[in-house]
């Protein structure tokens, strides 16, 4: 006869990751390293935005970049060639996001000598990376104009966890009937605290505001560490 024993677990699937992420955040704070998790859809201009931002900041901060993708290393090489800073490629082994453990392994691959800022370019995806805390000090995302101003309604979790939302490709807004004010309102509905920064990474317009936000954040983080 079969007798079934029930073992109660009652545990969130994200619990271990959340704990690992908090531990990593504390360690990084102790070392004075500010980790920024940058998320977006594929093709939103993450790498171009990063190159522009890094070039504005690299004289003021020691920066390293971790590029997370399912495969390939084009982004890490592009960043290294365009900015000269340390840039490594992480592969997620088919996974759609990075978690705290994978982020830690990535950080182990960096020299981190006197590094002030590490930017993690997460896998291009608006769903999964929002669920998994990486241990970053702050979350940022890029929404590009061709994606449409209604995205905050469709991907509420992503917009609700981000401290800053960059709106890229503003130069093509008229061609896509993109309504910036409506987009800001949708973001505000999901996350009243989020800072919204319209930019054009191609021309560099508005990127200085993002660079300044990072600089202020890193300065505050180091003061607390």
């Amino acid at each position: 006869m079969d007798d079934v024993r029930i073992i109660e677990i009652k545990k969130s699937v994200f619990e271990d990751n959340d704990r690992d992420a908090d531990a990593l955040r504390r360690e990084l704070k102790g070392k004075g390293v500010y980790l920024l998790n940058l998320m977006s859809s594929p093709g939103s201009g993450k790498t171009t935005t990063l190159i522009q931002t890094i070039n504005l900041l690299k004289d003021k901060l020691k920066i390293a970049v971790m590029e997370a993708d399912i495969d390939g290393d084009v982004d890490a090489r592009k960043i290294r060639e365009a900015t000269g800073i340390e840039s490594i490629q992480l592969h997620t082994g088919g996974m759609c996001h990075l978690d705290a453990e994978m982020t830690r392994q990535g950080l182990d691959g960096l020299t981190l000598r006197d590094t002030d800022l590490v930017i993690l370019e997460n896998v291009g995806n608006l769903v999964c990376p929002a669920e998994f805390d990486t241990g970053a000090a702050r979350n940022a995302m890029i929404l590009s104009v061709p994606e449409g101003h209604d995205k905050p309604l469709k991907y509420p979790l992503m917009f609700s966890i981000c401290d800053v939302v960059i709106i890229n490709k503003m130069d093509v807004a008229p061609y896509f009937d993109f309504d910036l004010e409506q987009c800001k309102e949708y973001i505000r509905m999901r996350n009243p605290r989020a800072k919204v920064l319209p930019i054009c990474a191609k021309t560099g317009e508005g990127v200085d505001a993002f660079a300044q936000w990072i600089l202020d954040e890193v300065t505050a983080w180091k003061r607390q560490s």
Binding site: D2, R5, I6, I7, E8, S12
Partner: peptide
Amino acid sequence: SEQTWLLRGNEVEIKEIEVTNTT
């Protein structure tokens, strides 16, 4: 009102496991 928040429905939780002992 738009001043609303999710009370439940966001769970991704392991409730329990079942173990069958064949005797």
